[in-house]
Amino acid sequence: MNKATIQLLILLCSLCFINSKVNANEFCDTPLVLSASNQFSGAVKEAQLAYDKICKSLNSGAIKHDELYEILYSFHQILSSEAKSAMPALADHLGTFQNPLIEIIDGEISPRAPSYMVNREELSVTSITLFAQGKNNILSNTIPTTPANTCLQNTACRKSLDEYVKLVANVYSPFTLAPILLVEPFLLKKDREWMDYIDNARAQTYFDIGITTWLYEIAYGKEPDIFSSPPQFQYFTLRPMAIIENVNEAVDGQQTKSSLALEVFGVNAWNDACLGYACGTSFIITHVDRAEVDKFGWGFAFHVENDFSFGFTKHGDDTGFFVTVDLLKLIIDKKSSFKQYKEGFRQNEN
Score class of each variant (00 low, 15 high):
D294M: 10
C157I: 00
S336Y: 01
V325I: 11
L262E: 04
I143N: 07
I104L: 14
K190M: 14
M87P: 04
Y220L: 12
N154E: 07
S85V: 13
S160D: 11
A273N: 09
Q48I: 08
I102D: 03
I54M: 14
A83C: 07
Q347W: 15
L15E: 12
V44S: 03
G316S: 08
I209R: 12
V168F: 10
C279V: 07
E103M: 08
N154L: 02
I198M: 07
W214E: 00
P111K: 04
T145Y: 09
P230Y: 05
A47Q: 06
Q77N: 08
L94M: 12
L58R: 03
G299Q: 03
K329E: 09
V251Q: 10
T237F: 14
A201R: 01
D272Q: 13
S124N: 14
I226W: 13
V267E: 02
L139C: 02
Y277N: 12
A36T: 06
A261F: 10
D191S: 12
A132H: 04
G134L: 11
L182G: 08
K339T: 06
T96Y: 04
H315N: 08
A148W: 02
Q254M: 08
K335C: 03
E349V: 10
E108H: 10
I284G: 01
N271R: 11
G316E: 06
C157W: 03
G42L: 04
D106G: 00
F300P: 07
G42A: 11
W270H: 11
F227V: 03
Q133F: 11
S80E: 04
K135T: 09
S173M: 10
M195S: 13
N271K: 12
S228R: 15
F308V: 14
P231V: 06
T96D: 09
K84P: 00
K295A: 11
N170T: 05
I18D: 10
A43G: 08
I331N: 01
N170D: 15
I104Q: 12
Y341V: 02
P240E: 08
Q133V: 09
L34F: 11
T176C: 03
F97V: 07
F186Y: 15
I6A: 05
A36C: 09
S20K: 10
P31K: 13
Q98K: 15
T205F: 10
E349I: 15
D208C: 05
N149K: 14
T126S: 14
E343D: 10
S60C: 01
R202K: 07
I243T: 13
P224F: 15
S336R: 06
N2F: 12
S37T: 14
P179V: 06
S110T: 13
V267S: 08
E305W: 02
L152K: 02
I138N: 05
L49C: 00
N119C: 10
A201F: 02
Y220Q: 09
M117Q: 14
N137K: 12
